[in-house]
Computed example of a mutant assay.
Amino acid sequence: MRRVVVPLVLGIAGFAILVSLGFWQLRRLEWKEAMVAEIARGIDADPVPLPAGVDPSMKYLPVTMTGTTTGDEILVLSGTRESGGGYNVVSGFVTDDGRRIMVDRGFVSQDARRAPRPPVRLRVNGNLHWPDEKGSSTPAPNLAEGVWFARDVPAMAAQLKTDPVLVVASAVGGDPQGVAPIPISVAGIPNSHLSYAVQWFLLAVVWAGMTAGLIWRITRRPV
């Protein structure tokens, strides 16, 4: 009997730890779902005029504004399920009160990449955004072609000579110039806590099986 005490204690302790990690991930899942629901409500709220002071704490805030595009733009490599590969058009935008910001106007196909998009007056409803898309492996923008591989708000603002403020359009009044808005949604917010919980619970089952197998082998050995 004494031969199985240590592996049994270790087996029970390991099983308990793995199961507790699984339940911790389930609690994280509940927290994440509540957070995503709150973000969704914020995204879909009634838009407000663009605040005088804007900072990243206002991410997803719905805003409305009128102004004119500058004619300067950045094309960010993108794609949609319906249209395949293409680009998001990020335009310089001067509001009616003289502020220079950026508007992600939405998607154009590969064929429309070089279509003329001169300055145009627009009414834009959308959401403030600071995308977290640029990683260590993201290529540098191809400035000669005006093609970027991630939306990097400070870098794009420096290129377009605007304030580091990006509004992602959800609806555009005026001539869209062939650009289809892609509203912000919560679909892109990662939530893998359920899969993590399942992994911990499966590891707990495997640990329990291995412990049982070890104890069985120990008890089969001659004393």
Rank of each mutant, 00 (worst) to 15 (best):
L194Q: 14
V186S: 15
L203K: 03
I12L: 15
P141K: 08
G42V: 00
P190H: 03
F15R: 02
G42L: 07
F23L: 15
L18P: 05
V179A: 09
Y87N: 06
V89W: 00
G92Q: 06
S136T: 09
P131R: 04
R3G: 01
G213P: 03
W207F: 11
A34C: 02
V186W: 01
A140T: 05
V76P: 06
I218V: 14
D104K: 04
S91N: 07
V179C: 10
T211R: 01
L166T: 08
M35S: 14
F149R: 08
S137M: 06
V168Y: 07
V54I: 15
I215D: 00
P56S: 03
A52P: 02
V205M: 12
T66Q: 14
A37F: 01
G42D: 02
L160T: 07
A171E: 14
L166N: 10
V206G: 06
P222G: 15
R105P: 01
N142K: 11
L75D: 12
E145R: 14
Y87K: 07
P47W: 08
A180H: 07
L61N: 08
W31G: 01
G135E: 03
T162K: 08
W31L: 11
A212M: 08
F93E: 09
I182E: 14
D104L: 05
F201G: 10
I17M: 10
L122H: 11
S185E: 10
V179I: 12
T138M: 09
R221N: 13
D152C: 08
F93A: 06
G188F: 04
V103Y: 04
P181H: 14
A157D: 10
T64G: 13
